[in-house]
Amino acid sequence: MTNSEKQRHDLFLRLYVEHEESLRGFVRSLVPTLEDSREVMQDVAAVLWRKFEDITSMDDFRRWAFGVARFVAMEFLRTRRRDRHVFGDEALRLLAVASEESEDAFEAERRALNDCLRKLKDDQRSLVDEAYKPGVRIDELAARVGRSAMALYKSLHRIRIALMNCTQRVLAQEEPT
């Protein structure tokens, strides 16, 4: 690797790290199931690096990265998850635009989530810890804890809603008066 390649690589990493969480959230909005979105993100990172030399202005990195993520996600769904029902082009375009525009807001919510996770009850926190471990299947987890998969899905849904409301409250309190 030459010096210029190293510099390019270093610049890429910096830009990627800066937008990684936003890209993950965006990809998650496109790809049904968390496991699939994890897989898509690996492809997204690889394609971004492979195509990085094509980008002419670093100011365009964010828009370009979201475009690549959208393309990779749709390719994944088209070729490997034909059984899933997914959104059409216009919805995807609007989601990409909104994701870019709200990147700072989502980052603020991720920060606020830290406080909100601490406010969960022990059993809620345990469920989150277990359900979000890589590779965990909800049906298997449900069998392990003696509940139905639907009950766990619903519980997780309620926890997510509570966390979303909590992050809004936390951020509202941070707003300067």
């Binding site: 965006f26 919510e109 979303m164 992050t167």
Partner: peptide, 11 residues
Amino acid sequence: LRYAHLDSALA
């Protein structure tokens, strides 16, 4: 998007 980002963050 907020829901999806939260889910991604929890992961």
